[in-house]
C-alpha cells in the first residue's frame, strides 16, 4: 500500500520537474519548482530523513523559491525564443541515455549496501549528542560545516559586490513594492513571535531530535523577512558594524572553537572532552544566528541607492 503512495509521490515529483523545465513563462516555472521542492520534502520523509525534509522544504524550495521569485519579478527581459525542435529532440535522447545509465547503476548497486551507520553509532556516545546527523555535521565532518558557513557568507559578499560603488553602505531594495496592508501587518504581528519560538526550538532540539542550526536559521530568517516586509522592522543598513558582527558570529566562532581544539584536544575542530555538549550547543547557536542573518540578507539582495523613507 505504501509503495503505491511512494509511486504516486515520485510521479508528482516528475510532473512538477517537467513542468518547471517545459513551462514557457518565468513565473509559472518558479511556481512549478516550488511545488517540486515541497513534494521532495515528502519524499525525504518517506526516506526516513526528517532533518533533510526540513532543510529541503525550508531552504531548498522555500528560500530558494523566494529568491527566484524576486529574480523573475525584477528580470523583465523578453523571454528568449525557445530552442529548435531538432535540438530539443537531441537533448531529449541524450537525457534518456543518461537516465538509462543512472537507472542501470541504481539497479546494480551492491546488495549488502556499504554504510557508515554502525561507525556513527559506535562513536555517537563520545559526542553525547542524540541526533546522529547533527553529530556528523558538527563533530565528525566539522570542516564541511565550517566551510559551508563561509560559502554562505561568500555568496553574500558576492551579491553585495554587485551593487554600484556609491551605494556600498546603503540599504537593500524594498522587498514588497505593495503599499501598506493591514492584513500583512496583522499576520506578521501574530506569526512572527510564534515563528521565532519555533525556530529557536528547532535549533535547540537539533542536538537530539531532527532539527538543527540550518533548519532553525532558515525559519528565523523567514520571520525576519516577514517582519521587514510588513514594516515592523526597517530594512537594515548593510554597512553597520553590528549587523556584520552577527554575520561573522557563526564562521568566526566555529573557527575559534576549532583552534581551541588544538589547545585542549590536540586536533583542529576537536571538542574538549567532558564539555563537548556545551561547546557544541554554543557553536550551533552562533551558526544559527549567522545563518538566519545571512539568509535574510541574501533574499533582501545588494544595497541599492540610499533612500530616505
Amino acid at each position: 500500500m505504501s509503495l503505491a503512495f511512494d509511486a504516486l509521490l515520485c510521479l508528482l515529483a516528475l510532473l512538477a520537474a517537467l513542468r518547471a523545465v517545459a513551462a514557457g513563462e518565468g513565473f509559472s516555472r518558479v511556481a512549478a519548482f516550488m511545488a517540486y521542492g515541497l513534494i521532495l520534502g515528502l519524499v525525504w520523509v518517506r526516506l526516513a530523513a526528517v532533518d533533510v525534509a526540513l532543510t529541503e522544504v525550508a531552504v531548498g524550495s522555500g528560500v530558494t523559491g523566494l529568491v527566484l521569485l524576486r529574480a523573475v519579478a525584477r528580470d523583465d527581459a523578453p523571454a528568449p525564443l525557445a530552442a529548435g525542435l531538432a535540438y530539443r529532440l537531441l537533448a531529449g535522447v541524450v537525457a534518456l541515455l543518461v537516465f538509462a545509465g543512472l537507472a542501470a547503476v541504481v539497479l546494480l548497486l551492491p546488495e549488502p549496501a556499504p554504510s557508515l551507520a554502525p561507525e556513527v553509532a559506535r562513536h555517537l556516545p563520545a559526542t553525547d549528542l542524540g541526533n546522529p546527523i547533527t553529530a556528523v555535521l558538527i563533530v565528525f565532518r566539522a570542516l564541511d560545516t565550517l566551510l559551508e558557513t563561509v560559502v554562505l557568507l561568500l555568496a553574500l559578499i558576492g551579491v553585495w559586490a554587485l551593487s554600484p560603488d556609491r551605494t556600498w553602505a546603503g540599504r537593500p531594495a524594498v522587498l514588497l513594492p505593495a503599499p501598506w496592508s493591514g492584513a500583512l501587518e496583522f499576520l506578521a504581528r501574530l506569526v512572527v513571535p510564534v515563528g521565532v519560538l519555533v525556530g529557536l526550538y528547532m535549533f535547540w532540539a537539533g542536538a537530539d531530535v531532527p532539527g538543527g542550526a540550518f533548519q532553525g536559521g532558515a525559519v528565523l530568517a523567514a520571520m525576519a523577512l516577514m517582519a521587514i516586509a510588513a514594516g515592523l522592522l526597517p530594512r537594515p543598513v548593510l554597512a553597520r558594524r553590528r549587523l556584520r558582527a552577527l554575520l561573522l558570529a557563526g564562521p568566526f566562532g566555529f573557527l575559534l572553537v576549532g583552534v581551541l581544539g588544538w589547545v585542549f584536544a590536540d586536533a583542529f575542530l576537536a571538542y574538549p572532552p567532558g564539555v563537548e555538549k556545551a561547546v557544541i550547543i554554543l557553536v550551533e547557536a552562533a551558526i544559527t544566528l549567522s545563518i538566519a542573518v545571512t539568509l535574510a540578507l541574501l533574499v533582501l539582495g545588494p544595497p541599492v541607492a540610499e533612500e530616505t523613507e
Binding site: A83, Y87, L90, A91, V94, L97, V98, G101
Partner: peptide, 16 residues
Amino acid sequence: WSSAALALVLVMVALA
C-alpha cells in the same frame, strides 16, 4: 550555451 551544454553531456556519455 546550447552546443556547450550538449557537448558536456556527450563527453560524459563518451567517457562512460
